[in-house]
């Protein structure tokens, strides 16, 4: 342990960012498994065990990263304070995505299965797009690119609008509750996950919301 001082290795904000990317990978795994249980008939109990274990890992990583961020500020002073505060918010967003994946799993645990639903293809496409978005956001954290942030923000906005439109449509639909409600809830969680992923992507260019009062 003491020898870690003499060893070469990643440390500082690069190390923390690397761990956040790992956390994002865990959140993606939870999301894929949870949506798999709802959309593709993956065994629910097996999925639940997997997601609970992954969520515990996400929560543990969140605590460790918070501690590492405090250590970073204590050692380096305030030089990276904007990035540190941004990462603090970012960690919370990733942790929330993990929770939202658990919420999707809860639908499956309540017996919701859309494996034979007529709109399965559309939902599967939405699930694939969001899963791909996890990868794009992770790549962005490792290799910051302002243009890519802007592209992701535009595409994610379109996804959010798509899910919002579905929610509105289902709220006013005359379909029975057991058809409309699970879909509305699922769209709601998908929309929140997309919003949190965009929030993570935006920390690359704007770690904190800018304060720019007009005279």
């Amino acid at each position: 342990m003491v020898l870690s001082f003499f060893r070469r290795g990643e440390s500082g904000m690069d190390h923390i960012t690397g761990r956040i990317v790992g956390m994002l990978g865990d959140a993606r795994h939870s999301f894929d498994v949870a949506t798999g249980a709802v959309l593709h008939g993956v065994a629910v109990e097996q999925a639940a065990d997997d997601i609970r274990a992954t969520d515990a890992r996400i929560n543990r990583t969140e605590h460790e990263l918070r501690r590492e961020l405090i250590v970073h500020v204590s050692v380096h002073g305030t030089a990276d304070i904007g990035q540190v505060l941004g990462h603090t918010l970012l960690i919370k967003k990733v942790e929330r995505i993990g929770d939202q994946a658990k919420n999707i799993l809860d639908l499956a645990l309540e017996g919701v299965s859309l494996a034979d639903a007529p709109d399965l293809d559309e939902l599967t496409e939405a699930q694939r797009s969001i899963s791909a978005l996890f990868g794009e956001v992770a790549a962005l954290l490792l290799d910051p690119d302002a243009d890519e942030v802007e592209r992701i923000r535009r595409e994610a906005r379109a996804m959010e609008d798509h899910h919002a439109a579905h929610i509105l449509e289902l709220v006013h639909s005359e379909q029975p509750g057991y058809v409309a409600v699970p879909r509305a809830v699922l769209h709601r969680y998908l929309k929140r996950i997309v919003a949190n992923l965009v929030g993570v992507a935006l920390t690359v260019t704007d770690p904190l919301p800018p304060v720019d009062p007009r005279p």
Binding site: F5, S11, E68
Partner: peptide, 9 residues
């Protein structure tokens, strides 16, 4: 600094 950070962690 980075070594110190790593060791403290």
């Amino acid at each position: 600094a980075n070594r110190v950070e790593r060791s403290v962690n």
